[in-house]
Nucleic acid binder design. Structure first.
Lengths: 242, 242
DNA sequence: GCAAAAGTGTTCCGACTACACCCATGC
DNA sequence: GCATGGGTGTAGTCGGAACACTTTTGC
């Protein structure tokens, strides 16, 4: 880490480190992008919605803390987890001012994408917890609106440049499932369906299982499976998905 | 990196926060990409090269700490500074084990790009400090090789998707100056010079000053100036530079 | 003249766009 | 049949890759 400069008269700051997670999910029924929020019940920002978070415990890695936040709030089967950004300016947390020991709070934010169908909110009766459609998110505690905005930017990028989508889709899925997911996150006007389809298949990372599925009216669709092996050579190559 | 053992009580960890900076520079004379390293003189990792860093002081923001590291080591005129990643697993720093109070060290890494010509290393006589060509970097202290690798990835991305290059170039420059910079960072085979030239001019973000400059043999080149106004509308748009 | 560096133009080809159109199902 | 959603094909266009060629300097 750091070379402790030999001449430091200035006092070093003491920190508690928090992990705030931006947890996204896609409601494929209603085509909405959701984000998980929890209601605060303590000062500061009591009665404000906020991103789920926790303070890092002894012996616990940052990522483990993020995992703990997730499992405390939802039962997660499959997900994608990635570090976002670290906010650490002094005075970003009002607790610092009130604190006699002058402890600072640092926030390492993580961004997660989970399967909506496989998650069950843990209703503990007391603390409110809810999926919010992204466009209806209220004013949040701390600088959480800022963190959320940054997380959303990152989600869109991830979707365009990496196959995260298949982490959140079921094992087998139709091509319009994929399209719906992309359209929900990126906006309706991101691409024509048939062109999207062509480009996606040209990547040769999807296997046609041959199985057809019929959902109401219309021609039955083929079920596809993500081929992790076929994707490997493309890993870390410059590539665009959409 | 999940280390939360269940036997540990739920005590919160106490942290000191360090800022480690990956400082890049381009030696346009010799077409080399350089990174700034400092020699450590204390345990742990005494006599190892490491990234310049410092611990965050009371009342000091993370970015201010990064700035302090820069000004302590070099006189900087123009630069680009951006947060990279936060490394915070337990046991990444050997000092943690020796420490009776069980204080953990978190490292927030920053990445900077500075003008080689405008910087002067502060030779304090004691601690070694040097520009290393990227391909000759030795084994570094802590996980600094990892941080450096990540910083290099980010530098290449920045160059391709944003006009950082013009932050490090002089006010006026020739088109091959720009090309040299890109080629040095991205590798010789990233593009043909004339195609690079065409694409760059098509962006219409460079003004031809009309002034010619002659450097030895060959036809004199036009000096261009970066037009920040013309770039504004392109800001945050999806665009590729190279 | 020749070498060296700057600057221009041209051809080829693949990718993306915008559609039109065919196919298989429920009702 | 017809509406609905799945799936295929095609013509036009844009932009990048490769490379030949011209221009202006130093020597």
């Amino acid at each position: 880490m750091t070379a402790a400069s030999s001449s430091i008269p200035d006092k070093l700051a003491d920190f508690k480190v928090g992990v705030d997670t931006v947890i996204f999910s896609v409601d494929t029924e209603q085509n909405r992008l959701l984000v998980l929020l929890v209601m605060r019940h303590e000062d500061p920002y009591s009665d404000y919605w906020s991103l789920p978070g926790a303070l890092v415990r002894e012996g616990e890695s940052l990522e483990a803390t993020a995992d703990r936040v997730l499992t405390e709030k939802i039962h997660v089967n499959n997900l994608y987890l990635e570090q976002l950004f670290t906010f650490g300016g002094p005075q970003r947390d009002p607790r610092e001012a009130q604190n006699a020991y002058n402890v600072r709070y640092l926030s390492v934010s993580y961004f997660a994408l989970v399967r909506y169908e496989d998650t069950a909110l843990i209703a503990d009766g007391v603390s409110g917890i809810a999926w919010y459609p992204l466009n209806r998110v209220p004013e949040l505690a701390f600088d959480h609106n800022e963190i959320l905005a940054y997380g959303y930017r990152r989600l869109r990028n991830k979707l365009e440049y990496s196959p995260v989508a298949f982490d959140v889709l079921p094992d087998t899925f139709t091509l319009s499932d994929v399209y719906q997911l992309y359209a929900t996150v990126l906006g309706e006007d991101f691409s024509d369906y048939s062109n999207f389809r062509t480009r996606l298949l040209k990547l040769r990372i999807l296997q046609d299982t041959g199985v057809k599925t019929s959902r109401g009216a219309g021609r039955p669709a083929s079920l596809y499976r993500f081929d992790a092996e076929a994707f490997k050579p493309l890993k870390d190559k410059p590539m665009v998905f959409l």
